[in-house]
Amino acid sequence: MKATGLLEKQATQSDQVLRIENLHVEYRSGGGIAKAVNGVNLTLHKGEAVGLVGESGAGKTTTALSILNLLPEGTGYITKGDIWFNNESVLKKSETELNKMRGGQIGMVFANPLTSLNPVFTIGHQVAMVLMKHRGIKEKQANETVKQLLEMVGIPGARLNDYPYQLSGGMRQRVGIIAALACSPQLLIADEPTTALDVTIQAQILELMKKLQAEYASSLLMITHNLGIISELCQRVAIMYGGEIVEYGSVREIFTAPKHWYTYGLLHAIPKLTGPRETLEALPGLVANAQNLPAGCKFHERCSHCLEKCKSQIPPMFKITDNHSVACWDVEGQV
């Protein structure tokens, strides 16, 4: 397919941090196979913030775990494609190299701060263990840094001996964020970092992430189903559906002129605060079932503009402008 090569063209440049090439991931258990990711291509440049958007079950978290090569053992398999971090294949790295990369060069913030901190270790230790591992320092020295980090996100340094249960959800997520950023990684992956939090806390956390990303000059892969977060934090956005990226481009273009009907649906499912009141358009149907994906375009069963072609042929990425591509047969004529 000639069109799929478009995104990789820029990827040969030296400032690229992450390049995902044609990634396919399957989950196998009890005889069932779920095709969670089906040919994802994505590139992140230095200091860039890219959003990965989709409903739950679209394969976002799987993509993130694949980058760290941390798919659940015995069930999750990368069947095709490769992931390049600093022009080195993550899949070919040894376990020792991977452990150096995880936490040291790539930090990850998890979705649920209530479950992603170990309940029986102090928060101080959970941040310090990253420093101890990657900086090779003792816990005592590490604790000094941990205190500074805690202060930086607005938690008194003296609380480093607290256990997770003694902290509120928002505070726990701050701990999760500084644990991910402690070693100034080149890439920060944030997997729905605000979903489990109250709305007011969400804003604080986002503000914090924005500030820290700028401060640490790291690239950011922001995974979310919340389009508001994307417009706040990211320059580019990839829309994911059924384990594929269906639309990709600059945040501005995609938000003002979405080309894929799924993106259109997503954008019109959010109430607008300004302007005349419109009826919300809910997307009909359910997210594509990874165990039984439809043929052709994964979205065609829910699409209001479905063509005959959509039911049998998977659409390639069509380039609309330099900053915008989309995988949809309906826009073929516009290219």
């Binding site: 760290l68 995880r102 998890f110 644990a179 991910a180």
Partner: peptide, 10 residues
């Protein structure tokens, strides 16, 4: 989750 999170810290 915290097991994966620990692994993700290297």
């Amino acid at each position: 989750d915290y097991v994966v999170a620990t692994r993700a810290r290297g």
